[in-house]
Design a protein around this nucleic acid. Structure first.
Lengths: 217, 217
DNA sequence: GTTTAATAACTGACCAGTCAGTCATTAAGT
DNA sequence: ACTTAATGACTGACTGGTCAGTTATTAAAC
């Protein structure tokens, strides 16, 4: 019986493809269960290899974790900062652009990292420091730049430049964690893109009815 | 030599005080390190007992975790709902009241739970379901009631009643998790009460300059 | 035939959970 | 009051299972 022939052959050698497959599997499981509760045997199985193979590419479980974070975190920030810088819209439009891009970035690849880092920061202080400096503060700085410009041109009122970036991005970030975590338990599905639109409207009008023109499109 | 006399005596019998001391210690450590990464020996030490004692009061580590969550979660919701119901303020004032109470509740006792549940929901589905139903949705319902009233009296524009509660509370919740997690790494201290005020102002005005009266107190 | 990616059996440290024993406290006996 | 028996809260050494990390072996690739 050669029933081992139907799958294209186990034990392939694919040195270049492995690392990203492994980190992808690890990200999913770390996010789902937490770092400590995730077994490397499970990560390996999810990546279609065995545990020994992990150690060909990553020297330890902790190193794998760091690789996961750094790999998933680098990309979208630059894209976002660049989009904001090159946009010629007025401040509010620029802000809307950033929020929509953020929602999109969270939606695809890895809005998982924010929750994962939050949960594990206590166990990995240096990594947490890196994350705060390289990701969060850079993101805040983008928004802060827009706000600052808006205040200068009197498009915005004179808001708190230190904390308002967090205030503005919090709903999107939390909505995303929410969806990734409680999605299956919740009555209403949560959609980051929808939250982006709600937040944009809120930034524009607040809760109050628009005094000049009650629009109805 | 009676040098054993200076500490009031180890090995006291305090059957009634133990459980809350244990859950308090457990909450701190679970929140700091995560459930799986927390050793019961450490919880016991932090509570001033030994591991064996834990098992006199809680049948398993998982049972301890559930006790921690349920104990920390029950109180503040009712207080908040009641305050909102008995307030005679206009909708925006009522909303401000709720946000301030929420910030206060997060600040003292246990704003830890929200992060802890977020991190462990995947490993404790029934508990997550309980938390979503009994805590989060009830909180949202309070806010939803206020919004609904505001729309009816035309104090508010016609906002999305399903999602806006989350949108409004997200900044406070996230700011709190932030402070509990990255507080020591962050440049600027995060204060929930301050975020409550920022958020109230944002709900009132949005980002835009107030068209009728540019106030400056 | 040589190289090396991949495997799987193995090891040892760690930790949740157990239990026989200890001692602070209570209360009965005098 | 003073002694002593009974109680049960508390301890800490122990165990069995689990899992990160290792290594001897296998087989794919060239």
């Amino acid at each position: 019986m050669d029933e081992h022939r139907d799958q294209p052959s186990r034990r392939q050698r694919r040195k270049d493809a492995r690392p990203s497959e492994i980190t992808a599997a690890a990200l999913r499981l770390f996010h789902e269960r937490g770092f400590a509760a995730t077994k490397l045997d499970d990560v390996a199985a999810a990546a279609g290899v065995t545990k020994g193979t992990l150690y060909l590419y990553f020297p330890s479980k902790e190193a794998l974790f760091k690789a996961v974070v750094q790999e998933s975190v680098i990309p979208n920030i630059d894209r976002l900062a660049q989009a904001a810088a090159s946009s010629t819209e007025p401040p509010l439009g620029k802000l809307a652009l950033v929020l929509r891009l953020l929602a999109q970035g969270l939606n695809e690849s890895d809005g998982c990292i924010s929750k994962l880092m939050l949960a594990e920061a206590g166990n990995f202080p240096e990594l947490a420091q890196f994350y705060v400096d390289e990701v969060v503060h850079r993101l805040h700085d983008v928004v802060r730049g827009i706000l600052s410009e808006g205040i200068a041109t009197q498009s915005f009122r004179n808001i708190d430049l230190v904390h308002t970036p967090r205030l503005i991005m919090a709903p999107l970030l939390l909505a995303n964690m929410w969806r990734n975590t409680y999605g299956s338990f919740d009555r209403y599905p949560v959609d980051p893109a929808h939250y982006a639109e709600l937040q944009i409207a809120m930034l524009q009008h607040g809760l109050l009815p628009s005094p000049q023109e009650p629009r109805h499109d």
